[in-house]
Amino acid sequence: MSVGSVIKQRRIALNMKQEDVAETIGVTVQTYGKWENDKTEPKASQIAALSSLLNLPEKVICSGKYPENISDNPMQFMNKFGKLVHHVDDFSLVLTMYDFIEDEEGFYKALLKESELPKEHFEG
């Protein structure tokens, strides 16, 4: 696969039009189309915007490999996770998350934000 095929597959999975993605990212439809057709590649800042919009880690987009088991429905994932989480010890849960999370720093920052704890308390 390629960067273009990953963003195209994800866009289609999310039932989005090229026009919608291009407008949100701030590029022309022609530019976005060139990305999907692997004629050009997005800049780093555009990868970050695509990551946010398409709900895919930047690392996944840049790898050019679309994950096989990615859920397009967060509620479906949360339902499955909710059924399992109470049957796994904390250490195993965190270790498994570490092994499978593509963007550890982004995950950590998101949790820190949700916790509303002072950032300085966790630096170092």
Results as ranks from 00 to 15, higher is better:
V88N: 08
E58A: 09
S92W: 06
V94C: 14
Y66Q: 06
D103L: 12
F91R: 13
H121N: 09
V88S: 14
K65S: 06
A49Q: 11
E58Q: 12
M16Q: 08
L95I: 10
H121A: 07
S71F: 13
K80Q: 03
Q30V: 08
A13V: 07
V60I: 15
E102Y: 09
R10S: 01
K80M: 07
Q76F: 11
G64S: 11
A44C: 07
K80L: 06
A13W: 00
A49I: 12
F100V: 13
E58L: 04
V85P: 00
I70S: 08
Q46D: 01
A48S: 10
N69S: 11
Q30A: 07
F91L: 11
F91G: 06
N79V: 07
W35D: 00
I25C: 01
D20W: 01
N79A: 12
Y108Q: 10
K43W: 00
S51V: 10
P118C: 01
K113L: 03
K83H: 04
M75G: 03
L93R: 15
A13F: 03
D72I: 12
L111H: 09
E23M: 08
I61T: 13
Q18Y: 00
L53H: 11
L54N: 06
D103C: 12
S115R: 15
Q18V: 00
P118A: 00
F77I: 08
P42H: 00
F81N: 07
M75Y: 08
F107R: 14
K80P: 00
G124L: 04
K59D: 04
